[in-house]
Nucleic acid binder design. Sequence first.
DNA 1: CCGCAATTTGCACCCGGTTGCAAATTGTTG
DNA 2: CAACAATTTGCAACCGGGTGCAAATTGCGG
Lengths: 343, 343
Amino acid sequence: MIKKSKNMQAAGGTHKVTASDVARRAGVSKWTVSRAFTEGASISPKAREKVLKAAAELGYRPNLLARGLTKRQTRIVGLVVDEMDNPNLLGLLKETSLQLQRRGYLSMLLNISEEDREGAAISLADQFQVDGLIFLGTVLTDELVHLAQQIHHIPLIVLYRNSDIPHIQVVSTDGHLAGREIAEAMVEQGYQRIGYMAGPLSESTQLRRLEGFRDGLAEHGLAVEEIVEAGHYQRGAGFNALSQYLASRPANGRVEALFCENDILAIGALDALHKRGEASSMGIIGFDDIDLAASPCYALTTYRQPLERLVGEAIRRIGLEEEVPRCHLLPGELILRDSHRRR
Amino acid sequence: MIKKSKNMQAAGGTHKVTASDVARRAGVSKWTVSRAFTEGASISPKAREKVLKAAAELGYRPNLLARGLTKRQTRIVGLVVDEMDNPNLLGLLKETSLQLQRRGYLSMLLNISEEDREGAAISLADQFQVDGLIFLGTVLTDELVHLAQQIHHIPLIVLYRNSDIPHIQVVSTDGHLAGREIAEAMVEQGYQRIGYMAGPLSESTQLRRLEGFRDGLAEHGLAVEEIVEAGHYQRGAGFNALSQYLASRPANGRVEALFCENDILAIGALDALHKRGEASSMGIIGFDDIDLAASPCYALTTYRQPLERLVGEAIRRIGLEEEVPRCHLLPGELILRDSHRRR
DNA sequence: CCGCAATTTGCACCCGGTTGCAAATTGTTG
DNA sequence: CAACAATTTGCAACCGGGTGCAAATTGCGG
């Protein structure tokens, strides 16, 4: 198709086919070239065709930096990420980058972790005139919020989490509903003594789920009896936390079922039970439905968030002109496997 | 520190503090402002200080698009990724983006998967004048290579894989050595009948490992007796492939040990054994040492690649002027757990 | 065939920085 | 203090493409 690649080579090592080059070859002015590449610009079909042909022959591709400079929009979206230990994040990244590309956006990965306390990455992204920032399940620290406050001209969207910061939009799963459904599943198994395993900190996202969980249990006269704190969203953390819990209680002094804030913790918890040879002594439910949850080794009952729709909704808000509700909640789906069952 | 944020607001909704604004406030010309931000430019310390002060007060941050346009370098690196199902990729992404940021680079995520057959994403990245492309364990399809051929002016680096394409640099683990070490570990356990589980296609990266594995076995008069094909690098694929294998052979007609091309496959294989209640009937070794490999549920013996150093070496090649060897191989480390042992 | 409106096109200038060059300032030395 | 070298600084031009406006072209009814 692009058989004229010889031309491109001959033009000189550094490719620098500019709009003017195309214009010269097409016998028009460079402004006409610009119009040929602009959707809905006023240009005669004939001229456009000439330009497009010349462009193809020369292998012309517009310089996106220059375009971004004048148009004031780059079609780059910053994806802000922190804890890159959660395998669930990979699926999220994949879906987001894919949907972005599908709509002609490029994704810039911004890693907000330990060392980048001042949010240098986000600042850089802003200097690059990104068209929007999506926080992928990022924990919104105070510094982060403060930093974000200074960015007024582009949409800021938090995905997979809740937040009450005024000008930050939220697209997330309905945590309260999810918590209730999970409570229901446990009640159905006849558990009486029920616990909860928490991650790093009590954040509003998790609080809402926990609240829903409590409300669900309360409808049956039950309550959350124990909160096991894991500290981090890491398998090892879940493992340690539950191991310690098990070691410190007699078998009859423990909760019968445990709702873990996410699948990683849940799997850590199952590992802990497994190691003590008490794999079936406690009902476990996780959250996220990561790939591994389906492993027969775990058969983890969990709650799947509507990934695709969430991401779609988040992206929809990037180019948007009109006003939309600040917060968008979607229901998820309880995935029943074996780990929550009495065995 | 930035207490003059009121100014920024007052300056008008859309922040657009330009170099000229700073120049006016500092009482110099905009060119002096530019020099103040350029390392090693000829400017008097006094002037620089004035500019820096004015810049801080105004909250000035240079527009990176404009800078990129003239300097012909953006400090953006494209990270090309395909199969985003391999959890190992997350660690790779994390390490790479982190190290890039540490050196003042930004990462652009380029998802080369199903739909993006023509490599539109890579083309876009090129139009954005990225300073380099790093292929993170990407399978180099013909189209991809063809596309890459047209990009002559920036370094192209393949990480975690091998490749013989002339102007593509390679930074990878020494696969032959790894294969031999793994063979050694199996021989040590006294296995006689040994198999190999392959992923999607026989690529040079894997071939080199397999070759090393064969050579290692051959030193002890052994050979690879069976190749189980999984098709994809997915847990389910490994699970299915081994389930089918087990179902089609009598217990005494099977290999005693299996070297899997990666941990995901290995875990799928262990799942298959687990499901049939024959968890300890076959020695398994994986590759990559993903987090889950350490789970007591799997205790997978595996081979860890020197992630940090590999990434460091890859990045070093981005800004480099002088010529370096096209190919850089590093040794990894065999992680001995239980899954390869006779039990 | 003319007049007028609707397209189409060319042009100057802008986006926000950087670079080469020459003018202006500073410092040094005979 | 003049003469000359070393810095510093201002300026014009440019990176590559987009926008507003006016000129040029086209189409159409009278």
